[in-house]
């Protein structure tokens, strides 16, 4: 009985936490400052931005056809970043969950619903 209560409380926390993350990615990402940030600013001030390689390996990956940085390609500019944020947040959520599931001992055998 108390195990069921604690399970539903855990589920509520996970849903609330993921919900907050998705809201942040969808609603706040357009408000993010576009000023150069920490290292970016330093590399401009100290003139070493040109050290960045022109065609980094990530650009050769198929994902580069889908995302241009944090912007989904092929959709209106206003929703490109929120949608990229939505996808990225869900992928981070799923990967960390899956990774944890693989690693944590006894996953899948005990504590089942």
């Amino acid at each position: 009985m108390s195990r069921n209560i604690s399970r539903s409380r855990n589920r509520a926390f996970v849903i609330a936490g993921l919900g907050v993350a998705l809201m942040v990615a969808l609603l706040l990402s357009p408000l993010a400052s576009s000023d150069p940030d920490g290292l970016n600013r330093v590399s401009e001030d100290l003139n070493f931005t040109d050290r960045e390689v022109e065609n980094p390996p990530a650009q050769q990956l198929p994902f580069a056809n889908v995302f241009d940085g944090y912007a989904l390609k092929g959709v209106p500019a206003g929703v490109a970043t929120p949608l990229a944020g939505l996808v990225g947040t869900l992928v981070a959520f799923g990967l960390a969950w899956g990774f944890g599931k693989l690693v944590v001992r006894g996953s899948g055998s005990s504590d089942r619903d």
Binding site: L22, V24, L28, S29, S33
Partner: peptide, 21 residues
């Protein structure tokens, strides 16, 4: 095993929050 969903939530929140400069 109960840590597993929390790992997902933590990754999701940190990813989303990192987008907000």
């Amino acid at each position: 095993e109960r840590a597993v969903p929390l790992m997902g939530v933590c990754a999701a929140f940190i990813f989303a929050a990192q987008m907000i400069n």
